[in-house]
Measured scan of single mutants.
Amino acid sequence: ATNIVSKVKWYNSTKNFGFIEQDNGGKDVFVHKSAVDAAGLHSLEEGQDVIFDLEEKQGKAYAVNLRIK
């Protein structure tokens, strides 16, 4: 899926990962520091509106092509 609009559930800049809620009630989506860095960001804030693409690797959903709404 591409261009999903949602909100950051939480992000831990010390552990370099977090999760984004899915508005459709699906499972929370993992977001890694590499996606945050690629977006030119230093961190994410809880409740922040984001747009991302969903990529599945080894049966897990990852946020990629992250951008701020």
Results as ranks from 00 to 15, higher is better:
1 A>L: 13
1 A>G: 12
2 T>N: 10
3 N>K: 07
3 N>H: 09
5 V>D: 06
6 S>V: 04
6 S>H: 05
6 S>T: 05
6 S>M: 06
7 K>D: 01
8 V>L: 04
9 K>N: 01
9 K>I: 06
9 K>E: 00
11 Y>Q: 00
11 Y>V: 02
11 Y>E: 00
12 N>T: 06
12 N>Q: 07
13 S>P: 14
13 S>F: 11
13 S>L: 11
13 S>Q: 12
14 T>Q: 13
14 T>P: 06
14 T>C: 14
15 K>M: 14
16 N>A: 12
16 N>V: 03
16 N>T: 07
17 F>I: 03
17 F>N: 02
17 F>V: 02
18 G>P: 02
18 G>Y: 03
19 F>L: 04
19 F>W: 10
20 I>C: 03
20 I>V: 06
21 E>I: 15
21 E>S: 14
21 E>P: 04
22 Q>V: 12
23 D>E: 13
23 D>K: 14
24 N>S: 11
24 N>A: 11
24 N>I: 10
25 G>D: 09
25 G>L: 08
25 G>I: 08
25 G>M: 09
25 G>K: 09
26 G>Q: 12
26 G>Y: 10
27 K>A: 11
27 K>M: 10
27 K>W: 09
28 D>Q: 07
28 D>M: 08
29 V>K: 02
29 V>C: 04
30 F>Y: 07
30 F>S: 00
30 F>N: 00
30 F>W: 04
31 V>E: 00
31 V>T: 02
33 K>M: 06
33 K>F: 09
34 S>I: 10
34 S>A: 09
34 S>M: 11
34 S>H: 09
35 A>W: 05
35 A>D: 05
36 V>Y: 03
36 V>G: 01
36 V>P: 00
36 V>Q: 00
37 D>I: 15
39 A>R: 03
39 A>C: 05
39 A>D: 01
39 A>L: 08
41 L>F: 10
42 H>L: 13
43 S>P: 08
43 S>G: 13
43 S>I: 11
44 L>N: 01
44 L>W: 02
44 L>P: 01
44 L>R: 02
45 E>F: 15
45 E>V: 14
46 E>P: 15
47 G>C: 08
48 Q>P: 02
48 Q>S: 08
49 D>P: 13
50 V>F: 03
50 V>D: 01
50 V>A: 02
51 I>A: 06
51 I>M: 12
51 I>P: 00
52 F>P: 00
52 F>A: 01
52 F>C: 02
53 D>I: 04
53 D>A: 03
53 D>N: 06
55 E>P: 00
55 E>C: 14
56 E>D: 08
56 E>N: 11
57 K>H: 12
57 K>F: 13
58 Q>R: 12
59 G>P: 01
59 G>K: 06
59 G>H: 06
59 G>I: 01
59 G>M: 05
60 K>A: 08
61 A>F: 15
62 Y>A: 07
62 Y>C: 08
62 Y>T: 07
63 A>W: 03
63 A>P: 02
65 N>W: 02
65 N>G: 03
65 N>L: 03
66 L>Q: 00
66 L>H: 00
67 R>I: 07
67 R>G: 03
67 R>W: 04
67 R>C: 05
68 I>A: 09
68 I>R: 07
68 I>V: 13
69 K>C: 13
